[in-house]
Design a protein around this nucleic acid. Structure first.
Length: 595
DNA sequence: CGGGTTTGACCGGCGC
DNA sequence: GCGCCGGTCAAACCCG
């Protein structure tokens, strides 16, 4: 607001300064010919009265302004003006004394006031003459002689004003650029958030149906219970006795020494680094403290450690077109490093989340080598602090993607982190949107938004839905059916993916890929049109989704003001959190998806 | 002056 | 063991 005030005043589109402005200079100003100077003066005036919108300053005298303050200042020498000394404060104080003497008489007081007024006026005129600079004097006194000097001064003023205007234009251009970048980034975040919402909604349905239909499959059932619990624990588990259980980022884990022993007490290596100390002091990431309530009694502690280590290494990469140095995801980041990566002329920047002390979330930003308009942002870790709704959009999406990735890889019985595991998943209505790569060193899911379809790009008005597809009480809703149909057929082949929200959506089409060693048939969805219709219907039917959408859009429009959106987001999270164990904690922002 | 950025140094993993 | 590479640190610097 404050940043843009100068611009709005400068342009003055509403004519707030349509009145003749105050002229601080004593020389005449041609308002028609000196528009730049006019603007400058207006800005100065506005700065003097920051609340001038409400209480505009009174219209000044036409050409000159009086300086009564000079009446009290005898220190300013006016050698050329003897009269001024006489009329100056000497007279003023002498008259005050006399006014005291004449206190009893109102008439004489009135005479004194009149005298003062007269003297003020008189003195003002003299003061203007004596305190002006030479150049100003020349403009006033030497009115007829104002020649080249005057022209030069005007030119100089004009030049200065032009420079100021140029700077302002540059600043405005910068602001507009930032706004555009923010809108672009927010658009991407919103897009991903919508995807996440859709995915989580469908996941809810799938889980329920799978438990009912495939529940007899003991192995599958066990996975479906174990894996989601683990990934629900990805968050800081602030509900867990008030002790945040944020898993450290992969880097933290690497720095802590032996992989997989982070839940123990044998932190080795560079654990004395400030970041580690911060995290330890905050008691973060101790995922092992989450009580085990599942039926995975056969899972050894070793497996658990392995799982945790893998989770910490999970990364979510987002590809989006952006001219900005990094996409606006709503979080606050601090750059802590930059490296030239091999095979890419563009440097890779390393950022750390600074929204909370000790937040383990980090991200890497690098432009694509092939297409430098594509910005690749890789997220790692989970936030251990509340997130504003604008940040929750991206965080929940990336978290969902991470859970998908981890659930798909870790639940695999035939090899965690299989380097050959590569599942290329596609949205039914688009080209490739998500790529899951669990290849070493880090399992990474890439969300490609560079040529992504707009989920809200609706092809035709939808027919009124027979029932709300998003209604939690109606798990046989339209959209979950559509989402789930293809997946359901392959569900048994996606070992572990049945609890992965994103995977359930985006891995419906796996072109001949091997997922966890199982051959997955390529399956083309024929309900593409139905899906877009269903999305539309869902938006119209479900108030939570609509609220979330409105909140996200509002966040973009309002410049991401969290206070306006927290309610919507909180309601959305709370109302849709019933199928995971995130408990809707704000600290679980990255893992508590707004289903 | 505090917070963010820059940038060279450093560390650990990995392959040869 | 050595070099490469990714990732991080931290002092210097910048900026509002």
């Amino acid at each position: 607001m404050a940043k843009g005030s100068g611009l709005s005043i400068d342009s003055d589109p509403f004519g707030f300064f349509i009145h003749k402005p105050t002229v601080l200079n004593s020389f005449q100003v041609d308002y028609n010919k000196n528009n730049h100077l006019f603007h400058q003066i207006k800005i100065k005036q506005f700065n003097q009265f920051p609340n001038s919108m409400d209480t505009p300053p009174p219209p000044p005298p036409p050409t000159t302004i009086q300086f009564p303050v000079n009446l009290n200042r005898s220190s300013s020498p006016a050698p050329s003006d003897d009269k001024r000394k006489v009329v100056d404060e000497m007279d003023f104080f002498r008259n005050r004394k006399t006014s005291d003497q004449f206190k009893a008489s109102d008439d004489k007081n009135k005479d004194f006031n009149d005298r003062m007024e007269i003297e003020l006026k008189v003195n003002t005129g003299l003061n203007l003459l004596t305190t002006n600079t030479n150049s100003d004097q020349s403009m006033v006194l030497d009115d007829g002689l104002s020649t080249d000097a005057d022209q030069d001064k005007k030119a100089k003023n004009e030049l200065a004003v032009l420079e100021a205007e140029f700077k302002q234009m540059k600043a405005e251009n910068r602001r507009l650029k930032q706004a555009l970048n923010q809108v672009t980034g927010s658009y991407n975040a919103l897009q991903m958030h919508i995807l996440s919402l859709m995915q989580n909604r469908k996941a809810e349905n799938i889980i329920n149906s799978s438990e009912a239909d495939i529940g007899h499959d003991h192995d599958h059932d066990e996975r479906s219970r174990v894996v989601p619990r683990q990934f629900m624990d990805l968050g800081p588990a602030s509900n867990n006795g008030g002790e945040a259980d944020e898993p450290p980022s992969s880097s933290e884990e690497r720095r802590s020494g032996s992989a997989g022993k982070i839940n123990g007490h044998d932190h080795v290596g560079r654990e004395d680094s400030p970041a580690d100390r911060d995290q330890q002091s905050q008691g973060n990431w101790r995922q092992s403290k989450v009580p085990r309530t599942t039926s995975s009694a056969d899972q050894s502690a070793k497996d658990n450690d392995q799982t945790e280590a893998t989770m910490r290494k999970a990364r979510v990469s987002v590809r989006a077109r952006s001219e900005a140095p990094m996409i606006a995801d709503g979080c606050q980041w601090r750059k802590y490093g930059q490296k030239m990566a091999k095979g890419n002329p563009c440097p890779r920047a390393y950022y750390r989340c600074t929204m909370a002390a000790g937040c383990p979330v980090r991200k890497q930003v690098q432009r694509c080598a092939e297409d430098q308009t594509i910005l690749v942002t890789t997220y790692e870790g989970n936030h251990n602090h509340p997130l504003p709704p604008p940040a929750m959009a991206m965080a929940s999406t990336t978290s969902s993607a991470a859970r998908m990735l981890l659930s798909g890889s870790m639940s695999s019985a035939d090899g965690i982190m299989n380097p050959n595991f590569l599942a290329r998943t596609m949205l039914p209505c688009s080209s490739s949107m998500a790529t899951i790569s669990a290849s070493a060193p880090f399992p990474t899911v890439t969300l490609d938004l560079t040529h992504s379809p707009n989920p809200l790009h609706l092809q035709k008005p939808p027919p009124p839905p027979p029932m709300s597809p998003w209604n939690p009480s109606s798990h046989q809703g339209l959209l979950p059916q559509i989402f789930g149909q293809a997946l359901y057929n392959n569900q048994s082949k996606f070992s572990g993916l049945q609890v992965s929200n994103v995977a359930q959506d985006q891995s419906m089409v796996v072109p001949g890929g091997h997922v966890n060693g199982h051959q997955v048939q390529m399956q083309q969805l024929t309900q593409q049109g139905s899906m877009t219709d269903s999305v539309t219907a869902a938006i119209a039917a479900d108030p939570n989704f609509t609220a979330a959408l409105a909140a996200a859009i509002s966040s973009i429009i309002s410049g991401a003001h969290p206070s306006n959106l927290s309610n919507n987001a909180a309601n959305l999270t709370a109302s849709n959190n019933d199928n995971n164990n995130n408990n809707g904690s704000n600290g679980n922002a990255t893992t508590s998806n707004s289903n």
